[in-house]
């Protein structure tokens, strides 16, 4: 094994790339959960975003248009979840699982003709001065626009939840839908908007996988990324800043194991490939073992159905 083959500058740069899809999906899901809704369909929305983004980008030659359509597709799919759970009052866990199954089926149906094709990917931005800095320039300032957009979304979500009135209402709906309803806030409407935001973010994350990270369409290509995003929300104890840390840590693990494989680590490639999932479990155990803390952090009405009786 030759560890010197791993270039630290490229390593950090590729961590940012591999963390972006999960970061986007996780920050969206965090907003959904803050409003008191547990949407387990992240995987389904991500993969639908991945396939729609890919199809649009390959047919129009415009990757950004692909991203936009992927966000819309994710939002539309999440709207189905919203209608079922908020209006038809179905069980959120079951509906989320259903959304994942629908998304996986839909994506492989749509993506079949596009398997193995190549698409145009996003160009790396060339930021004056910053990109030319030694080491740091290539590490942090030579990425495509989506990497910076994802960071921007994290900051925006943080500011929205912490410093705006609308953010306060969203949190109130998640903590106690009965009280929020009594105060005259539209619980269902707030939750629907949050669900659609989450869907759009998951769609963007999926499109980043198929348009930048891989960049190809293969069936089932998200390979659990949506579920890992859900785990990261728990890991982050529903805080935007920690979602960022969690996603980048996870991206780091993924890239590191890929690099170790490439550097010629011969024993058990499969054991390296399963490491991200095992580490996710370990992190979940670590977070939840501190029980007094984690139970306070979760929105109090998370996953509960709201039915206005008055």
């Amino acid at each position: 094994m030759d560890l010197s083959a791993i270039n630290p500058v490229l390593l950090v740069a590729s961590i940012m790339i591999s963390a972006t899809p999960i970061l986007l999906a996780a920050i969206g899901e965090m907003v959904v959960e803050k409003s008191g809704v547990l949407n387990l369909g992240v995987e389904g929305m991500m993969i639908t975003g991945a396939v729609i983004g890919f199809i649009v980008a390959i047919n129009t030659g415009a990757p950004l248009l692909g991203f936009a359509t992927a966000a819309i597709a994710g939002a539309v799919l999440s709207l189905a979840f919203g209608v079922l759970t908020q209006i038809f009052l179905s069980n959120q866990v079951a509906t989320g699982l259903g959304l994942t199954l629908v998304g996986l089926g839909l994506s492989s149906l749509l993506g079949k003709p596009y398997e193995g094709q190549k698409t145009v990917t996003l160009p790396k931005l060339d930021i004056p001065i910053l990109s030319d800095l030694p080491v740091v320039g290539r590490m942090l300032f030579s990425h495509d626009i989506m990497v910076y957009l994802s960071l921007g979304i994290v900051v925006a979500v943080w500011a929205f939840l912490k410093h705006t009135r609308a953010g306060l209402i969203l949190r109130a709906v998640g903590e106690s839908h009965e009280s929020a309803h009594a105060l005259g806030y539209k619980v269902i409407r707030v939750r629907m908007l949050a669900i659609m935001f989450g869907g759009a973010c998951a769609g963007l994350g999926g499109a980043y996988l198929s348009l930048v990270r891989v960049p190809q369409w293969t069936e089932g290509m998200t390979a659990g990324a949506g579920w890992i995003a859900l785990a990261i929300v728990v890991f982050a104890s529903w805080r935007a800043g920690r979602v960022l840390v969690g996603a980048y840590l996870f991206g780091g693990i993924t890239v590191l194991q890929l690099n170790l494989q490439a550097a010629g680590l011969t024993w058990g490639v499969q054991y390296l490939s399963m490491s991200p999932y095992l580490i996710t479990i370990l992190v979940l155990v670590f977070i939840s073992s501190n029980r007094s803390r984690s139970s306070h952090d979760a929105p109090a009405n998370l996953g509960q159905t709201f039915h206005a009786t008055r």
């Binding site: 509906t95 259903g98 629908v102 998304g103 089926g105 994506s107 149906l109």
Partner: peptide, 26 residues
């Protein structure tokens, strides 16, 4: 017919079931 359409078909079945389930409880 593509094989994946059956998967979608099964997913739809679950979706509709969860949707009409509202009639059982409400």
């Amino acid at each position: 017919v593509p094989g994946a359409s059956i998967q979608l078909f099964q997913g739809m079945l679950l979706f509709f079931l969860l949707g009409v389930d509202v009639l059982t409880n409400y």
